[in-house]
Amino acid sequence: MILTCIMQRVFRTNIPAIHNWFVTTGMAGMVLLTICTPAQGQATTISDFEGVWKIAKPSNSLEASTPVVLTAEGRKALAENKRLRSQHKYDDYDITISRCSSPGVPRLMLTPMRFRIWQRLGVVTFDFEWNRALRQIDMRGRPTEPLLAPQMTGQTTGRWEGDALVAETVDVSDRTLIDDIMPHSSDMRVTERIRLVDADTLEDRITIDDPIYYAKPWGGVVTYTRQPATPFFPEHVCLDRRDTAARAMRGK
């Protein structure tokens, strides 16, 4: 009990401190940390997702594992996106392509580049190689207020259910897409169940709930493979590369 409470105190500051403790005490390889929560009197399991990850099968689309049933408004929005794409009018529907704006949630989880996960201070931070983007999941269980202005990554809170992190994201700007084409309204709620399939495989079960555009919730499963540990990614500046590409296209 004393040990677990000490661990709990340390954990609130620094999960790797616990991880390192396991390593230095010969308990390396343990991926599930169980701490005591005296207030509830029951064990809570917290998975250690920290590390560098990369999508296993890169795809521009969130490949649905359940049927996608659009509402009339959703069909209209999707048709418009397809029309704009056929005319290469990217800035009218996909400002990630045209401006390097954050892809937001859940599209960031489809990035073909690496990302790193930190679990610190009650927050799970996804530190993306692409344009040094961030998304965070607040696990502290504190009450939240709706954002005054929606964000590309919205506002995400999470909780543990068994060994899965269940994240709920709301307040996502409707200037983002679910993937490279699927639209959503500002009322979208994204639910993710993130868990370790094994020590080197991370799974994100994504569910889209947006009654304005979709008649029923739908989603897909994205998996990631653990990458060699490195604390640094190259400084990726999307705008820099976009401008370079634009100059090249102009022959300058």
């Binding site: 045209s98 401006r99 344009n131 961030l134 964000q151 590309m152 999307c238």
Partner: peptide
């Protein structure tokens, strides 16, 4: 300031990257 672990989004590309 451990009480500020959740960062606000900074998405300057949306404005600065406007091609038009």
């Amino acid at each position: 300031h451990p009480n500020l672990p959740v960062f606000k989004e900074y998405n300057c590309e949306e404005q600065v990257g406007d091609p038009s």
